[in-house]
Lab assay of single mutants.
Amino acid sequence: CHSECLGNCSQPDDPTKCVACRNFYLDGRCVETCPPPYYHFQDWRCVNFSFCQDLHHKCKNSRRQGCHQYVIHNNKCIPECPSGYTMNSSNLLCTPCLGPCPKVCHLLEGEKTIDSVTSAQELRGCTVINGSLIINIRGGNNLAAELEANLGLIEEISGYLKIRRSYALVSLSFFRKLRLIRGETLEIGNYSFYALDNQNLRQLWDWSKHNLTITQGKLFFHYNPKLCLSEIHKMEEVSGTKGRQERNDIALKTNGDQASCENELLKFSYIRTSFDKILLRWEPYWPPDFRDLLGFMLFYKEAPYQNVTEFDGQDACGSNSWTVVDIDPPLRSNDPKSQNHPGWLMRGLKPWTQYAIFVKTLVTFSDERRTYGAKSDIIYVQTDATNPSVPLDPISVSNSSSQIILKWKPPSDPNGNITHYLVFWERQAEDSELFELDYCLKGLKLPSRTWSPPFESEDSQKHNQSEYEDSAGECCSCPKTDSQILKELEESSFRKTFEDYLHNVVFVPRKT
């Protein structure tokens, strides 16, 4: 048989008469490798580009789960590009990614509803959504962080984005990388972005840091009482949809009607710091009717980097990364020049730590249904340095008659930039024990000054392991946590139920 035959053949030295091919099969003959313009397919066939392209389009058009959109890589027609490569849609070739590779997620039936953290986790790592997304989240724990972890990498949506009755959302900033909504599939009414009845939605994105392009379709905003109209108009300008909307697409009466839409800028007039305090004062603000001013709200939190936005980490279910302080308005003076500047002394802060701070007014709604208010920009203030805590785990070892090696770990709280350490030492008198000992005694162990690591005695271990207080009263049991108490109650309830079950099964009433 021919060298490319495997198993047997019907005619000697003829690659077209093989029972099976050793390498690849091409047009009725066995070959060692697939010549151009053919590609290896499933490690035994040679196919042309049209064959591989037909497989790709067949799966793409069917949208069946589990099928493969075949691509070409290293002269092979394979189910998908290997790690580190992405497909070129024009020629199906796998090309190296520039940075992290995109991950295209194809949605069944063309859309997916995100109504819980669990459903959001199914899209973790996706960068391109081939379909439409509907966000409908009523509640949950730590929602802002969970949504950002699972949806934060999405850069492109081919269909539309719909935010509907998501009472738990305060902001859409968890879509931190969303840059493009194509609108290839539109919501009824030709809408590519749809926001309806979101009672706590206050911000779409921080438009000073976020760009969003909507290729096709219109915007729809109705019944978002805490979303200011200025935020919607800003989205029109940034996304390129200005002029597409009709009169009733953006409701003037049901958007922002319960919001404090600040239209003035508060400026800080005085800032002073110490290692654990920050004193702030800002310019006074009074609405047209000074009785509408209820006070100020001061927001602050630790910020290692200057990239904080107002609604980071917030949701309507209680999660809030900001510390909020309510401040009463100052006494009002008739003389504008003698107006008191409101302020606040922030206490209990960490030394040498940068804080993000902003302040906003708290006002009631005027009778004319106009909203007044003022808010400052987010500023960054760093507390002063102070003395560091003591170095940890000092170790001293003498390696000769004239040297001592000293080692330690950095302090747990540096409280500033540590530039150097101060080492103090003092000579001590020799131990009298060394002169009084009889060095001729056998088995004498000389006193040693070398360091030995501390260890816990058996008594201390027994005390720590004991669940009861000892007789001397030195140790006591740790208080039980809520989960331990709940577990004990469940076990007790189970024992009672099981005992009742045994009584009912074992003891049967005697027939009379």
Results as ranks from 00 to 15, higher is better:
L151Y: 01
K209N: 02
V238G: 15
S319K: 05
D292A: 07
K112A: 14
D257V: 09
N136I: 04
L108A: 08
R291W: 01
Q354L: 12
K242Q: 15
N142W: 15
K337Y: 08
Y285P: 01
R247I: 14
A149N: 11
T309F: 07
E146V: 03
L362E: 05
K409Q: 04
N340S: 06
D367H: 03
P391M: 03
F275R: 05
L201P: 00
L172V: 13
I271S: 05
F221R: 00
L153R: 11
S119G: 14
G373K: 02
S400L: 12
I405M: 01
W282M: 10
P336R: 14
I405A: 05
A374Q: 15
R370H: 02
F290T: 07
I163P: 00
N141H: 06
E236S: 09
L151F: 04
D115Q: 03
F290Y: 15
Q258A: 09
N307V: 10
I134G: 08
D326C: 02
T113K: 13
L362Q: 01
K177S: 12
E246K: 11
E122D: 04
W352M: 08
I379N: 04
L345M: 08
R347T: 06
L345G: 06
K267E: 02
E184L: 11
G343T: 05
A356R: 03
S132A: 13
L294I: 10
W207S: 08
L279D: 15
R370M: 09
N130E: 12
I271R: 02
K234V: 15
C261R: 03
F358L: 03
E122C: 11
K360R: 13
N340L: 09
L294W: 06
S319P: 14
Y194F: 11
R176F: 06
L108H: 15
K234P: 05
D257R: 13
W207Q: 09
L331A: 06
N136Q: 03
Y160T: 04
L196F: 07
R244D: 08
I135H: 05
V363G: 07
K267P: 14
S321Q: 15
L227F: 05
K301M: 11
V325W: 10
G159V: 01
F220V: 13
G240L: 14
F174D: 01
N307S: 14
W282S: 02
E231Q: 06
I135N: 00
S402D: 07
L266P: 00
Q306M: 01
W352C: 03
K337A: 10
G217C: 04
D377F: 07
P342T: 07
S132F: 01
S269A: 06
T113G: 07
N340Q: 08
Y191K: 08
H222Q: 15
D257H: 08
W207A: 08
E368Y: 07
E146R: 15
